[in-house]
Design a protein around this nucleic acid. Structure first.
Length: 406
DNA sequence: TCTGGGGTCCTAGGACCC
DNA sequence: TCTGGGGTCCTAGGACCC
């Protein structure tokens, strides 16, 4: 196996810069929803010490002092740029698995000079999209990830590294901190370091049973993959999601149930649209609310409940109605809510979905299409004239709870 | 004043079946 | 003293990823 991991450099910052050439060479930062915290930094911004994930209000002085260009996030743009990058890279490899908005695994097995090919992919993606990418190559996904990290760290490699074998590989593993290994998170990382396991090489040298016992089979997969044994296959191509979440923090604290009804209607409609886009239907739905735990002294309340949807559905109005029913059950007045969300689960493909034995008439209507003819019409209108050209009136128009984006 | 939004997989334990 | 053996499904919570 020869697997490559392609990863866009500073993706959101690079997207903004692709359409603002005067920002090339200048520090750029992109903020999360509600302009909350830093989620992307150009290399220049990293060099100035802007921390990942830091709240915007704590960085404001730094931004001003260095003249850093700061953007609210624009997910429509990033999604579109991602699709372009993936289309170019996908056209240069027989098999590709899109792993996240800015990463994809490419199968380079059988190529005579995988590193040369990877360089060609980098150049082509940059030329066609304006987005710089790095590529790491290895026999397993975990090693490809590791190679990618090394390629980014050492700029002399020109953005591409084909992980060597033998002693050279051992030396590289010995210089990789355990927390930088894909699959080792903060929890296991901390425990491993406490036991003297500092590097990827230390981890490889642990006995198999110890890894299995303390980190279950997922940890064992990481251990095997680092030793060159593939455990995580190249799949996920066109895979449907098993859960769809739509949630947002509010632009300002929300207290009234009327505002929560609007927000949850909106989130439920977004989730239902994503569900229809993957030609699925959901058998259950969960709604939750939370207050702002950062505000000490404010009374805190979080609640969530799920409800079955029978028969399973992708119909916006049924999903919105179910979400609002749950809201009525969990809402408590007198709290300043900060965030709410809707999650759809029990997702199955509409084409092979189970029908209801009892509710024949409604089932028949549901199965006339993904969510019936009304949903088909709504989706087509929104595809042609833009998102939310048609939306449920219960989602409101003024939306005082909406996002802040300056 | 101000701290994001989406996902996946695994395990344990409860409730149930024959 | 002693109390079968083999399963499934669901949920909550933990750990990880971007």
């Amino acid at each position: 196996m020869k697997l490559a991991l392609m990863d866009c450099n500073n993706f959101y910052a690079s997207c903004e810069r692709a359409f603002a050439p005067h920002l090339v060479g200048r520090p750029v930062v992109v903020l999360s929803n509600n302009d909350g915290c830093v989620i992307a930094r150009s290399q220049e911004a990293k060099d100035l010490g802007v921390p990942m994930g830091a709240p915007e209000f704590k960085c404001r002085a730094l931004f001003k002092h260095h003249g850093i260009a700061v953007f609210s996030s624009n997910y429509a743009l990033y999604g579109d740029m991602s699709a372009r990058v993936m289309a170019v890279a996908g056209g240069m490899s027989p098999r590709m698995e899109v792993y996240s908005i800015d990463e994809a695994f490419l199968d380079l097995t059988g190529l005579e000079r995988p590193e040369d090919h990877a360089r060609l992919v980098c150049e082509t993606v940059k030329r066609c999209t304006g987005i710089p990418v790095s590529i790491g190559i290895g026999p397993t996904k975990t090693l490809a990830k590791l190679a990618n990290k090394l390629a980014k760290r050492d700029r002399s490699m020109g953005g591409v590294l084909d992980l060597p074998e033998g002693l050279e590989r051992e030396a590289l593993l010995g210089r990789t901190e355990i927390r930088d290994v894909w699959g080792i998170g903060p929890r296991h990382g901390k425990r491993l370091i406490e036991r003297g396991v500092r590097t990827a090489l230390d981890f490889c040298r642990l006995p198999r049973e110890v890894v299995l016992k303390s980190m279950t089979v997922t940890g064992l997969h990481t251990w095997l993959e680092l030793r060159g044994v593939p455990c995580i296959s190249l799949d996920g191509v066109g895979k449907s999601k098993k859960a769809i979440v739509s949630s947002r923090s509010f632009g300002r604290p929300v207290e009234s149930i009327e505002d929560l009804r609007e927000a949850l209607s909106h989130y439920a409609a977004l989730a239902a649209g994503k569900l229809r886009a993957q030609k699925g239907q959901a058998a259950s739905l969960q709604v939750w609310l939370e207050t702002n735990s950062f505000v000490e002294g404010d009374p805190q309340y979080t609640a969530g409940q799920s409800v079955g949807l029978s028969p399973a559905t992708a119909h916006t109005t049924r999903i919105v109605r179910a979400a609002l029913e749950v809201l009525e059950r969990i809402y408590r007045p007198g709290y300043r809510y900060k965030k709410a969300g809707v999650m759809l689960t029990g997702i199955e493909a509409t084409a092979t979905a189970q029908l209801s034995l009892l509710d024949v008439s409604e089932a028949a209507e549901e199965h006339a299409g993904r969510g019936g003819r009304l949903m088909d019409a709504m989706d087509r209108v929104n595809a042609k004239w833009g998102r939310e050209t048609l939306f449920p009136a219960s989602a409101g128009i003024a939306r005082p709870w909406g996002m802040r984006q300056k």
